[in-house]
């Protein structure tokens, strides 16, 4: 059984009286250890496909199965639990909560699931901060970090619940070459360790890291 299966996924939006197609019908399969790169021109529906696969939005047609369970028909709590425990997210813009410290931002997923004892999960968070080279910055405000450091913070947060799949939407889009390389290496390492990685990018250098490439054409 595939870890993640997208069956005839299609996404349309109603804009005024017009029905706009954001993603034409796509089917795909993602397995553990696979580093799938989704690429294509702007407007091809890359990010939309990533959102559908990760349960951030629902398809207009088709279905997404995670470990055989359909995300579209799942109740909201179950879907939130899967996003919390089984999926890790890295976005092009490193979204953080500015009023929390770096360490608290990494611990954020535990606020919505997992271990309830802070002393237990804080150790885990520190380990992940160390993994991305930010251990010394744990007490700092995210506002004081550079773009590369922020993306590494987000990376640590994505890993902290030991997810089965990491979804990365243009993770290097706002980074310089050195930081881009670091993030891509880290993603590749995660795939090597057995996690599935689904990454959207349009950068050729980034595509080279993928084990499989799905190219979408403009709708």
């Amino acid at each position: 059984m595939a870890l993640l299966l997208g069956k005839k996924l299609k996404r349309t939006y109603q804009v005024g009286t017009q029905l706009v197609t954001a993603l034409a019908t796509v089917s795909l399969e993602v397995n553990s250890g696979q580093f799938l790169v989704i690429t294509g021109p702007s407007g091809a529906g890359k990010s939309t496909l990533l959102n559908l696969l990760s349960g951030l939005e629902q398809p207009s047609e088709g279905e997404v199965l995670f470990n055989g369970a359909c995300l579209s028909t799942m109740n909201e709590t179950k879907l939130a639990n899967i996003r919390n425990a089984a999926f890790g997210f890295i976005f092009q813009i490193p979204h953080v909560l500015p009023h929390k410290t770096v360490l608290e931002n990494v611990a954020l997923p535990f606020q919505y699931g997992g271990l309830s004892n802070a002393s237990q999960y804080m150790d885990q968070c520190l380990e992940h901060l160390e993994y991305v080279g930010l251990k010394k910055l744990g007490d700092r405000s995210p506002n004081t970090l550079s773009g590369g450091e922020l993306q590494r913070l987000v990376f640590a947060r994505a890993l902290v619940r030991d997810p089965q799949i990491i979804f990365a939407d243009e993770p290097t889009g706002s980074l310089d070459a050195a930081n881009s390389k670091l993030i891509l290496e880290l993603l590749k390492e995660q795939a090597y360790k057995g996690r599935a990685v689904v990454m959207v990018t349009h950068e050729k250098e980034a595509m080279a890291y993928g084990s499989d490439i799905l190219k979408l054409d403009k709708v």
């Binding site: 951030l56 919390n84 919505y112």
Partner: peptide, 16 residues
């Protein structure tokens, strides 16, 4: 709004 989106992405239910 984006912070709400982030919280939902990483597992916050509507109830939370």
């Amino acid at each position: 709004t984006r912070e709400i989106g982030l919280r939902m992405a990483i597992g916050a239910t509507k109830k939370r």
